[in-house]
Design a protein around this nucleic acid. Sequence first.
DNA 1: AGCGCCGATACCGTTGAAGTAACCGGGGCT
DNA 2: AGCCCCGGTTACTTCAACGGTATCGGCGCT
Lengths: 105, 105
Amino acid sequence: MPFRVGDKWTGMVIRCLEGGPRRFTELRAPLRAVTPKVLSETLRAMERDGLLTRTAYDENPPRVEYALTPLGRTLIPLLDAARAWSATHLPHLLAARRSHERDAS
Amino acid sequence: MPFRVGDKWTGMVIRCLEGGPRRFTELRAPLRAVTPKVLSETLRAMERDGLLTRTAYDENPPRVEYALTPLGRTLIPLLDAARAWSATHLPHLLAARRSHERDAS
DNA sequence: AGCGCCGATACCGTTGAAGTAACCGGGGCT
DNA sequence: AGCCCCGGTTACTTCAACGGTATCGGCGCT
């Protein structure tokens, strides 16, 4: 794929926007670990790819809202599928990994 | 996710193994661009995670077969879904990207 | 002896995503 | 004046993935 849904943050941004538009700081709150720089890079890349829209309101304090486009929403089922896979199979994978660590030790 | 299906090669390896076990050089052939080093790194990581098995036959010349485990096969539907998404929506995404490039120029 | 096959491994360099820390401007509040 | 809020930007650094080239060991073939 020529773009990275597998980016560290793209998927989580989509999850946060599922329920409707969110502001920059509203995105930062649930994603504690993301720095403003990385978040703004992620958002700009997603806007460039037509996955979300950025709307600035000329108010005070400034307000900027990010919202998924229909194209962005088409990714939700894929994320759901990935999440379902993780719920079902990730324990097996981690168990396999641990047993290999045991072999090595 | 704590492991990278989004790795550059993991998905393609799964595709190549869908139809049955393959040897190291049989994997290299369809994946022309992959160097032996990167392929063996990918395969070892996948084996560690229980996605495939490695079987060495003590013959001459040496023969090693890689085969998907049941766990590895559970990823195939996800790859199918990703491929279907690409077929349907990737053109839209690329079109959006191009129109942003035009804005910038 | 020299060469090739197979399945790698060693060493080293490049690249790009991600993280860290600091700062900015415009407005309002005290 | 000094501080906070919001929505970022800039410069610098770190780190793992990826890639290129060279090489290895065991064996057989000629």
